[in-house]
Write a protein that binds this DNA or RNA. Structure first.
Lengths: 153, 153
DNA sequence: CTGAATCCTGGTTGATACTG
DNA sequence: CAGTATCAACCAGGATTCAG
């Protein structure tokens, strides 16, 4: 997720800006990151209740503190998540979706439905392609084959 | 990319098998890549017409041949795109969405609508955060403000 | 308990050049 | 025209450690 600055693009030795405007591209840059969409989902499920940091980590199996922190920061900066700090001695931080964040849950759910309905077929297509080149065809090495170790759920 | 799931590591790498992967995560891994969703969009707009390789590259500003090729291969392997080759002397290759691919266009369009409706607000939220720490009292000294020369590792 | 700072890795992208 | 191969760079993200 592009850390800060939607206004400028700090990288690129020479121009690599393909499209400055396309909001869809930028949205995908965000929700496409490993944990963002899961965080939104978990927070949406709890909504309107708040969820604490540790609780979030518990519900998002496999996420590290760093990534949870970074993900929540990103979402907070984007205005999708609200952060509330209890200034107690062991500080408690609560997170919840903003209305904007909840509105994102809708298209995200549509994506989830599609995934659950059709990803099996995608996998089947992949397997067909795999066995087609299974014998010996060095010409087309599979760019991403059957089961890349994708960690978390 | 760990070709097969046999990512045996003699001694160093600790456990890497975590999760079979929820379908949503895997879907996002695909459409979250830089060009995939754009390709689907462009192909969907042309549907049911076919689009040739060069034409696709023309419509997807900034994409390199390599990435276009890789993107189309991925989509084809996933069963979202169909490929047709005209065996002429200068070969012509045509691409079009499969029914499966067209079905993906739907949730993707929902995402696009959300993006166009709300990304401006996301940007506003980002700007608010930026100027909050951009003032005269940088609570967080920028480690690399405008570092032009990125020393190689 | 929350979260920031640091080091390191490999997967992803890009530019370029070559082939059929 | 439609790719592929190679080289180099970048960045997400995981582990670890430190701090309030």
């Amino acid at each position: 997720m592009t850390p800060s600055s939607t206004s400028r693009s700090p990288n690129s030795a020479r121009g690599d800006l393909f499209d400055p405007g396309c909001p869809t591209r930028r949205l995908l840059d965000r929700i496409g990151t490993k944990w963002t969409s899961m965080a939104v989902k978990v927070l949406a499920e709890a909504s309107p209740e708040e969820v604490r940091f540790a609780e979030l980590q518990r519900r998002m199996t496999g996420i590290s503190q760093k990534m949870l922190s970074a993900t929540l920061q990103g979402l907070t900066r984007d205005g999708l998540v609200a952060r509330r700090v209890e200034a107690t001695v062991p500080p408690r931080v609560h997170y919840r979706l903003t209305p904007l964040g909840r509105s994102l849950e809708e298209p995200l759910a549509a994506l989830r439905e599609w995934a659950e309905a059709h990803m099996a077929e995608v996998d089947r297509a992949n397997r067909r392609g795999d066995e087609a080149s299974a014998g010996s065809s060095p010409a087309v090495p599979p760019a991403r084959a059957g089961s890349p170790p994708r960690p978390p759920r």
